[in-house]
Design a protein around this nucleic acid. Structure first.
Lengths: 189, 189
DNA sequence: TTTCTGCGGTACCGATCGGTTTCCATTCGG
DNA sequence: CCGAATGGAAACCGATCGGTACCGCAGAAA
């Protein structure tokens, strides 16, 4: 009876998959519930018994983006590289369908401060920063906090600019800049 | 008779002022025409004889943002500073009501590639980059193109991150990073 | 005063929004 | 073979969207 184990392709997962693609590609505010149910092959009724509201669906979408690693920050986990190399490898060009960081894009669209998605965005950004600082520490940076924060800004810039000008070449300029910042942080005593 | 010189506070200017504040604060898609005319103290009729459509109003809003310097890139014009200092001064904290770069925010919201605003965004970003490269050249950078592009990414990151985490402290991390990049570009031979 | 024009107010249009409800075909346990 | 639960299709709801049409008032021109 009842709810699929959620690991299989039950209706909830189909809805989330459809919503993720549409929200990311066309924007959150520009995507109607009707579009989501059509792509998911699901009725509105089913959607609304899985999610309280569109706002909650958006929050679930952001949570899904955080958890199941389809984000670029995955590159920090490449243990075959030295920590310092990982910090630079983060800046390799993303794939073609790239349209910026879904978290940041959502924060631009969701101006309502009480939106349930905002907490997810904030938590993600904090977690990403923590991992950057941690990797900077592993790399032996003189001031891991400072280096982590600087790379944080630079990475956000590469993703944001790739959106603004619709060209992932931004990463090609960010990468050597990151190498410079990392190099300076490691040689400083 | 008829249309005010546009330099005065005619209806067109009032509409643009209202639209600018609302589009920037609450987002473009989240702002209805009804809101704009209410704040502007103008009838819908007047709005639609000044602007063909909402899309055109959005494009005019972006054009206005480009022209009448209320954007941070104004800091590149501070001739009392040396070019190298200007490149760093660009990263001083913005004011309190800051909510990111209006151009970038619009590019996140306007996913339609044919939207008339997209050309304005692209032109602005290109112009900003050109000025960065030019200033880098004045500063005597070994590779002005490269330094300009790197600072371009870093600056976009500071503005974007200040939006994502709702905290202008991002600029405080970007500023010394910019100083590092500038310093490296000047000492390299 | 008379006339014309610009403009705010407002009713209105069809479409779409987020969300609810009804109906019916399918499926599955007993 | 039956009854209950599921969920897709679709009608429906009030609100709001972008955009249009009309009314009536103001002020300048004559």
């Amino acid at each position: 009876m009842a709810n699929q184990p959620a690991t299989t392709h039950g209706p909830r997962e189909r809805i989330l998959a459809a919503a993720s693609a549409l929200f990311y590609r066309h924007g959150i505010n520009a995507t109607g519930i009707g579009e989501v149910v059509e792509v998911a092959g699901v009725s509105k009724r089913t959607l609304y018994q899985q999610f309280e509201s569109k706002d909650e669906l958006v929050a679930a979408y952001l949570r899904r983006m955080t958890e199941s690693g389809r984000l670029l920050d995955r590159r920090l986990d490449r243990t075959e590289l030295a920590p310092g190399e990982r910090l630079v490898a983060l800046f390799e060009r993303p794939g073609a369908a790239f349209r910026g960081c879904p978290m940041h894009n959502a924060s631009v669209e969701l101006t309502e401060p009480a939106h349930p998605g905002r907490a997810v965005i904030h938590a993600y950004k904090q977690g990403f920063l923590d991992r950057l600082v941690d990797t900077a520490r592993q790399a032996g940076a003189a001031d891991p906090e400072e280096l982590g924060h600087r790379l944080f800004v630079l990475f956000e810039g590469a993703t944001a600019l790739a959106t603004s000008i619709n060209d992932p070449a931004a990463f090609d300029y960010a990468r050597p800049a990151a190498a410079t910042l990392v190099g300076q942080a490691l040689t400083a005593e």
